[in-house]
Structure formats: C-alpha cells, structure tokens
Design a protein around this nucleic acid. Structure first.
Length: 484
DNA sequence: TTTTGAGTTGTTCGA
DNA sequence: GTCGAACAACTCAAA
C-alpha cells in the first residue's frame, strides 16, 4: 500500500453502525484508507450532560463498534476534547485530506458542525456530511407556505408522499486501513459506567450495538409487528420493538427499519396487520417529527412552545418529585413504570404517558423536571423525542394534548394491564393482591390486603394524592391559564 | 383570500 | 352496563 495515499477520517457520532452508514460508505468507496473516529466532546453535553443510562449504553456501543471495525481490518480511534481541535489535530497527525460524517440536528451541534466544516474547508480538506439519522431532514420538509409543520398528521402525510432513499449495505471483505493508526484513548478511562451497581439489570435486557439492534428488529418482525396496533398498548406484553435506544445511538438506521418492515410482508397478512405496520411506521414518523420540531424550535428543550405556559403555577414539591422518581406514589401502574425505568433504563410508551401525566397533572410538577429525570435514566434518552414527549404531556407543545386529557392511573392500569402482570413484575410487594384490586389496593377490603401480605403505609405507600381531587386541581389551573 | 375541518394515545357524567 | 356528549379554544393545513 502506498504511503502517499491520504486517508479519509470518518467521524462517528450518533451513527454507531457499519450498515447503511452514508459517511462510512462514501469513505469506503473512495478506495482510500479509512480512519474511523469517535470524539467525546464537551459540546455534546449541551444543553444537558449525557445521562448515566446513556453513558452506560455508549460505553458498550463504542466497544461493539470497535469490534466490528476490527473484523474488517479497521478500528475506532477514540479521542476526547472539543471536536474542532480534535478533528483538526487528527487531520494534521494522519495527513487525511477528507473528513466525512453524518449530520446531527440538535441546536447546539448544527452551528458547531458548520464551523468545523468551514475551518477544515479553509485548509483545503474535503468535507462531506450526509443524512444518516432521518428519513427526511428537517430543513427539507416544509408545508405549502414554506414553514415547518407543527401538526403531526399533515407532517407525516406530506413525508409519506415523498421519495425515500433505500438503505445501503457496506462492501464485503476487509477494508483499507491506514499505514499507521493514530493513538486512541481507552473507553474504560472515560468512566462512562456508573460507580454504583444501578445498571446491574441492564445487560439482561439490552445488547447495545449493531448486532443487538438486528436481533431486536428480527424478533419484532417475527411476530409482534402484526399485532402492533393493539399489542403496543400493553406494557406487560412483548408488543413493541424496543428499538428506541438502538435508533438513538444510530446502531440501526430508520431507513433500514422501515425497509425491513415493508419487505417483511407483515402488512399483507390482514387488514389489522396492515394497520399495525402503518402505526409502527407512524412511530418512526414521530421520531422524524420530533427532530423536525427541535430543529425549527430550538428553545423547546427547556421552554414551553406555547408561551403562556411560562406562567403556569407549577408546584415545587420535592417530596412528591422524589416519590415519583422512586416509584413510591402509591399508584401501582405509575410505580411499576417508574421502577421499570430505574431498573432497565427504559419505559414502555403507554407507561411513559401515564407517569408523565401523573407528574404534570396529578402532582402539578413542571414537565421539565420529568424531562430531566428521563434524560438521566433512559438508555434511549434523545433530546428531540424527550422534548416532544414532555411538551406533549404538559399540554404546552406544538401538537399538544388538550388540557382536560388527564390520565387516570387506575383506569389505565385496568385497561392496559388487566391481569396486573406489569405491576406484579415491577412492584413485587403487591404480587399477591388479586387482579381486581391490584391497580387500586387502597380500595381493597382489609382482609384481602392482609391475605396478600400487604399493609398499606408499611409495605406499600398510600396514594400520595387523591386522583379525583388532583385532577380537579389540574383542570382549574389549566383553565385559569386560558382565562388569563 | 376565505373557509372549513381536523387535531396520537382520555375521562366523567348523565341519560 | 353502555353510550354519547362535554370537556375549550385555537391553530394549522388544505381546499
């Protein structure tokens, strides 16, 4: 191999995969030696530092990616520091004449990447950025008046009428490595893993990395996808894909997921299956929409999109917030969700809505508090999706839930966890409570609780608020806001 | 330009 | 027990 051929740097970000990775693909097609790089940079921590659960995932995902690259004769060079100086320094060290990456759309990073691009181009480096994250890029989707969509349905209808590009598979065999590898930091030294054993249960649930993503997708296509329309509502069943962390870290692309679902033929089996596929693809659409909104409304990570909500009378109740975080609200369905989150770094979407509604409406605690907690505890913590979700549940987003939509945690439990499986799994102290009372143990006759070995206030808390009056309180607060 | 219809995920109340 | 209306008002997209 000639020493004179300048290598290409491929800057990996939220695209920790080999498959359908346009930046990598382009580099490989150039025939030049390829140097994959991951930069741990302080800009990535804006507006919020990465959460502990995300860091756990990142640690493992980086190791997996390095392993996969090594199978192809490459490796992942890891560096930390401001991205501009790290990438610039690597260009100097390696003599690279090109740098390729896939675009990110978070407010803090768009400008940074543009600066890096400009600075490198000024030095004569070939810079190419690609779309590896989304089906439709935020700046490319506009309504007929040239403005960003703010309502999901028309947004997604519009998107579905557009052309999409097909996923690409990387070339087989071994790839061209540089003559010399630049120094790399050790992921272990980044201290991404939590010191306490809080993540102990994660490995039983998750396999970070591209292979794990593939397995999840295949398991989903093997069955649940056909029942998704209905099955996705039941947190105690295996009805959803659980692809969210893999999608967040880019271990699998939205293009790949979409095309695999369509090619699986799942939709052809029945009308219900067709609808199931549509509603699953709609969830991919919500991910797109979240990025779209955050790109066009960058303040919404912290500020309500609807301005009047800045004067909403949120309560500052640390005690209630703590009970919510720990899953000790006394509402079993809510507590099951919060404990699943803590133990596994993930929460079923039905449960996300219920616990979110409980925090915001029943406890009248600001949605930002919920967003922060999710940010720290979710392995799929994604700035765009988290922002959209909490603005939605808070009723202050673009596509807001009407304020009077207050989830009743008992009814939700009875409807979507009728046998109490979900509650029994995550709130084991209630395991012996009969189905009839499992979602509202305080209503159970004393004898029933005694037989189940539950003393309320001792083994399991009394409800920290009375839902009926809490609902009234929330409705009044929201009504006042409207009234001015 | 104006008008019209619709908008992720719910609950309660009263007939 | 079931069912439909009410819970508001507003913005947005499209015809």
């Amino acid at each position: 191999m000639s020493r004179k051929v300048a290598p290409v740097l491929v800057w990996f970000r939220l695209d920790l995969r080999l498959d359908d990775n346009p930046a990598l693909q382009r580099a490989l097609q150039s025939g030049k030696p390829v140097i994959p790089v991951y930069v741990r940079s302080p800009e990535d921590e804006k507006p919020w530092a990465a959460g502990a659960a995300s860091n756990w995932w990142l640690h493992h995902s980086l190791r997996r990616l390095d392993g996969r690259l090594r199978e192809r004769g490459l490796r992942l060079v890891r560096r930390s520091g401001p991205a501009e100086s790290v990438i610039g320094g690597l260009v100097d060290e390696t003599g690279a004449d090109s740098v390729y990456w896939n675009r990110r759309y978070e407010p803090a990073l768009v400008g940074r990447d543009a600066r890096i691009k400009k600075a490198l181009q000024a030095r004569g480096i070939d810079i190419k950025s690609h779309n590896g994250l989304l089906l439709f890029e935020p700046h490319a989707v506009k309504n007929k008046s040239g403005r960003p969509f703010q309502v999901f349905t028309p947004f997604w209808k519009h998107c579905c009428q557009r052309e999409t590009t097909a996923p690409v598979s990387p070339p087989r065999g071994r790839w061209t490595a540089p003559v010399e590898w630049p120094r790399s930091e050790n992921v272990d030294d980044w201290a991404l893993l939590p010191e306490i054993d809080w993540a102990a249960a994660f490995p039983a649930v998750w396999l970070p990395g591209e292979e794990g993503a593939r397995q999840r997708l295949e398991a989903f296509l093997d069955g649940p996808v056909r029942e998704y329309g209905n099955g996705r509502n039941f947190p105690g069943r295996e009805g959803v894909s659980r692809l969210s962390p893999h999608l967040h870290f880019g271990e699998i692309s939205a293009r790949r997921v979409r095309s695999a679902v369509l090619e699986s033929g799942a939709a052809e089996r029945s009308k219900a299956a067709r609808q199931s596929v549509d509603s699953f693809l709609g969830e991919i659409g919500w991910r797109e929409f979240a990025h779209h909104l955050l790109y066009h409304f960058p303040d919404t990570t912290d500020k309500p999109l609807k301005g009047e909500f800045t004067r909403f009378p949120w309560r500052n109740d640390r005690r209630a917030l703590r009970a919510w975080r720990k899953g000790r609200t006394g509402y079993p369905f809510v507590d099951a969700g919060m404990r699943q989150l803590w133990r596994t770094g993930w929460l079923h979407n039905r449960a996300r809505m219920v616990v979110g509604s409980f925090l915001v409406k029943d406890l009248l605690i600001a949605w930002q508090e919920g967003a922060r907690w999710f940010w720290d505890t979710l392995v799929d913590a994604d700035l765009a999706s988290n922002t959209l979700g909490w603005q939605w549940v808070g009723g202050c987003g673009a596509d807001a839930a009407p304020y009077f939509r207050v989830f009743n945690p008992v009814l939700q439990g009875r409807k979507f966890d009728p046998r109490g499986d979900y509650v029994r799994e995550w709130v084991p102290e209630l395991a012996k409570v009969p189905d009839k009372w499992i979602h509202g143990p305080w209503e159970a006759p004393a004898g029933v609780l005694a037989d189940a070995g539950v003393a309320l206030g001792k083994d399991y808390p009394h409800p920290i608020v009375d839902h009926k009056s809490a609902r009234q309180r929330a409705l009044r607060a929201y009504q006042r806001l409207k009234g001015g």
